[in-house]
Design a protein around this nucleic acid. Structure first.
Lengths: 153, 153
DNA sequence: CGACTTATGATGACACATCAACAAACTGCC
DNA sequence: GGCAGTTTGTTGATGTGTCATCATAAGTCG
């Protein structure tokens, strides 16, 4: 016998779902039109471009974007085909695989970032007040902590 | 020359992205294990099951879940193949297509809902305080309003 | 050392999402 | 009525995500 969601809870939950659907669509479209990248491409290129040397071990990359290894492997295969990244052998662990961003990949995300950030600002950050940002910072970290517990059961 | 995200803005944005990735994965997995439904199936079955008669016009269904028509059409084809819904002709508009939830579809979502709601509660609603809910209710409606403006440009 | 377990990453099959193109039918204006 | 433009829904191609499975290599412990 579950406790149902009351009106406000249900409204917040459905608003969250709808918000994500719409936000995702807008960002995906803008990024693709502007640079030919998908949000998934962008998500991978960010940690790669921020890493010193532009090289990250696949395992660590999976952790930093929160993906399953299979998804990462498939996506890297496609990105490698487009010349955005290359795979190299891992010196410390023969099972491992190092992922390196190519100069072309770096140029692509460098060119894409300003417009993408502007869209994030326009659609997400700018409508928020200082108090909203403070509240979300707290709320999101609490929710993520709850999810970590969840997965540790 | 874009205005970059400061530390807190960036943290909130990345937390939002990571939260969604994790939350989506947990809910998808739980729902699939429990009932064989995907979140997409569930999203469609909710408005169908809530509609009097269990029939909704495809166009309206697309609006209420925020999907493109193509996605809806493909997904309905698969759901119809699994016996969750059927398509019927639309009496008022010969182009149209009415979507009807089957008794099996109704039974499936009825069985799935309690456990799914419990997971939503555990991972999203319960970690929030009353003040959080009030804040999110306000923030999400403001963000969605901003997105509507965005798409009207 | 040697058997067992775990970690890492790749792969094939399948479900899903997006895009462009299409056919059919409604709308409105002349 | 008739034509232009729009709306509705479907389809096929292609890119993407998930699952189960696999091969290889590390780690663990007798």
């Amino acid at each position: 016998m579950p406790r149902w969601l009351d009106d406000r809870e249900s409204r917040v939950w459905r608003a969250y779902l709808a918000l994500h659907t719409e936000l995702h669509a807008v960002l995906e479209r803008e990024l693709a039109a502007d640079s030919g990248l998908s949000l998934a491409d962008y998500a991978l290129l960010v940690p790669l471009s921020e890493s010193p040397g532009g090289v990250v071990r696949a395992r660590d990359l999976a952790v930093s974007v929160g993906w399953e290894r299979s998804r990462l492997s498939h996506h890297l295969t496609r990105m490698q085909g487009r010349g955005l990244v290359v795979r190299e052998t891992c010196p410390e662990d023969a099972r491992g695989s190092m992922v390196r961003i190519t100069p072309e990949g770096m140029a692509t995300i460098t060119a894409a970032a300003p417009s993408h950030v502007a869209t994030v600002r326009r659609t997400f950050i700018d409508p928020l007040t200082e108090a909203d940002l403070t509240a979300l910072d707290d709320i999101y970290s609490r929710l993520r902590a709850a999810l970590v517990e969840e997965s540790e059961l």
